[in-house]
């Protein structure tokens, strides 16, 4: 049997915001994703989308269950190995852009590649290539504070893509954008998915954005309510 690219096995996550308070964010979730998919996880606020993405990206640990990326377990591994795994195989796009404020767009895009030890010329070449695809070439020398939300999010996507990860996880990437910018960004992400073969999983509750995915997962109260392949 062919092994799935990303295998989420019986994931549960419980938070303890207070001494006697506990919130079950995810309940026994199992999902599989194939290489090169363009997936949306959608659902109402508080349904557990962000928590699931964080666990799939190794940013948070589940209370129970396992996540395997390309056959490699990413839950319960030591922090050093996990950060190497995030650096080399996973790209992140956050709702609030989360660019490093003191670095220019170029430096932000090059950051992960530099961590990977890529050469100067390789970083330059790849940054230019990605910047052209995302139409941000003229923004490269600007600091995040000097860019609009849409521009920052495109830089964030460029940063996630530049290091050629196997997987990009995007948490509501269009939430802070106007509809035109949101659609433009999704088109660009879709093009990257097709051109570079990167698996992209994003969360959203915007119907316009959800409609672009080829694999959609509906989460409700921390459980999978639907797992469909509409496209």
């Amino acid at each position: 049997m062919k092994q799935p690219f990303l295998d989420v096995k019986k994931i549960s996550k419980t938070f303890h915001p207070g001494r006697d308070v506990q919130v079950q964010a995810l309940v026994d979730i199992s999902l599989t994703f194939n290489r090169g998919e363009f997936v949306v996880i959608y659902g109402p606020s508080g349904s557990g989308k962000t928590t699931l993405l964080n666990i799939m990206g190794g940013l948070d640990s589940p209370t129970a269950g396992d996540v395997l990326l390309d056959g490699e377990r990413i839950t319960g591994v030591e922090e050093k190995r996990l950060s190497r795994l995030r650096r080399d195989h996973i790209g992140f796009v956050f709702q609030a852009y989360n660019l490093i404020p003191v670095l220019t767009a170029r430096e932000n895009i090059e950051y992960v590649m530099q961590l990977q030890g890529r050469s100067r010329s390789e970083c330059d070449h790849r940054t230019r290539e990605v910047a052209e695809k995302l139409a941000i070439a003229e923004l490269l020398d600007k600091l995040p504070g000097e860019m609009s939300g849409g521009q920052q999010q495109r830089v964030a996507v460029a940063r996630a893509v530049a290091s050629r990860p196997k997987l990009i996880l995007a948490d509501e990437p269009t939430a802070n954008l106007d509809s035109k910018s949101a659609e433009g960004l999704m088109d660009m992400m879709q093009a990257l998915n097709e051109d570079e073969g990167i698996t992209i999983i994003f969360s959203s509750h915007d119907p316009l954005v959800i409609g672009k995915a080829k694999h959609s997962i509906l989460l409700k109260d921390g459980q999978v309510a639907a797992d469909e392949f509409p496209g």
Partner: peptide, 16 residues
């Protein structure tokens, strides 16, 4: 802290 959190999230090790 947020900035360092971003760095950690995108693959910077704690040692770095």
């Amino acid at each position: 802290l947020r900035e360092f959190g971003i760095m950690l999230a995108i693959g910077t090790s704690f040692a770095q």
